[in-house]
């Protein structure tokens, strides 16, 4: 299923891939989407299990994994960049965004 592969894209609609090993900044990683193989040059170190961007995701745009929205870019994310809590925010259970009464 995922032998020798360094990263996996769960769904064709995804704009992120997940690392299947610790990957280094500067490394070029091949990812398969459908039957097409793309080469992505990493611009950050990507720890095992973490995500990197397959395409540019401008601030405010959705981050897609499993073919579904997993959050929104909180700043511009470049191709090959680490995608995680520093540049993605959740759209749900955001008590911090509620207007406080009183």
């Amino acid at each position: 299923m995922m032998s020798q592969r360094k990263a996996i894209v769960v769904d064709e609609k995804d704009n992120v891939a997940s690392a299947l090993a610790n990957l280094n900044k500067g490394e070029t990683v091949e990812v398969t989407i459908g039957s097409i193989v793309y080469k992505i040059q990493l611009i950050s170190d990507i720890p095992f299990g973490h995500k990197f961007a397959l395409k540019r995701i401008p601030r405010g745009e959705y981050v897609i994994k499993y073919g579904e929205v997993i959050g929104r870019a909180s700043r511009d994310i470049e191709v090959g960049e680490h995608v995680h809590v520093h540049n993605v925010e959740s759209l749900r259970a955001r008590g911090d965004l509620q207007k406080t009464s009183l």
Binding site: H50, E68, I70
Partner: peptide, 27 residues
Amino acid sequence: AMSMGVDMRGGQPTGGNIKGGITTIEE
């Protein structure tokens, strides 16, 4: 969760989930 007035992240997903690469509750 929202009644606490904070972003739930850190509680859910947990600190460990985040370390493991999970970014949001949706993911």
